[in-house]
Amino acid sequence: MVAQLEWARTSRRPYADTTNQFGIRSNVGETIALFGPSGAGKTTVAHLLLRFDEPTRGAIFIDDVPLRELDADAWRSQLAYVPQAPHLFHASIADNLFFARPAATPAEMERAARDAHLHAWGMTLPERYNTVIGEDAARLSGGQAQRLALARAFLKDAPILILDEPTSNVDPELEAQLRDAVTRLMCGRTTLLIAHRLAALYRADNIVVIQNGRVVETGNHQMLLQRGGVYQKLALGAGMAHA
C-alpha cells in the first residue's frame, strides 16, 4: 500500500523559458488538491504521476521509492484516473465500463454505474448497457461522459485516485449529482484532485496553489484564507470568503 507521494523538485519544461518546480507531500487517505489558473501546470502533474511523461529533473517518490524505478503497469494498477475529457470507445457502455477491470462481474459493473449516478440514464437507452456509444452512435453530453469515467473509477476500486475535475460544462443540477458521486468515490482513497473551481476545495486536506508551474502556496482552506495571498484573492473574487 502506498503511503506517501512526494514530488521532489520535479520540473518540466513545456516552454523553453520556464522551469516548473514542485514539492508536494501527501499521506494515505488524504485529499490533496492542485489549484491554479488554466495553463498553470496542474494536468502536467497528473501526467507525471501516471507516468505518461517523465520529469526532466527531480523525482516523484512513492513510499520513498523513486517512481521511475517502479514497474509502470504495476504502479498504474494502484491508480484510478478520471480525466477531464474521458475517452469513450466505440463500443457498448458495458465494454466501456469493463475496460476499467475486465474481470469484473456484470453485477459489479451495474453497482459502479449506480454509484456514479449513471444507472438511471443507462436504463433509458434502447439496449441498456449494451447500447453502443462512440463517435456517431448516441451522443453523450459532457455530464454523461464524466459519470461514465467516474463509474470506471468505482469499478477499478484502486487505492489512489487522480481526479481532473471537469470544467464548467454541466449545468448545476447535473453537477450536484457529480459532486455526490465524486465525494463517495474519494472516501477512503488517497486523492489528487485537480481543481478548476474553488468550490471543489473546501474539504481538501491540503491545497497546493500553482501559478506558472510553481507552487506559490500550500495549506488547507482556512489557513490559506487567513494568509492573504493568491488564494484569498481568488476566494474573495468568487464570493466564498464567508465559508
Binding site: 498504474r76 484516473y81 475517452h87 475496460f99 476499467a100 470506471r152 477499478k156
Partner: peptide
C-alpha cells in the same frame, strides 16, 4: 479510437 484514448488505455493498464 485507440490513439485518442491512449491515456485512458495506459491509465487502466489495458
Amino acid at each position: 479510437d485507440a490513439i485518442q484514448g491512449s491515456p485512458d488505455i495506459a491509465a487502466f493498464g489495458q
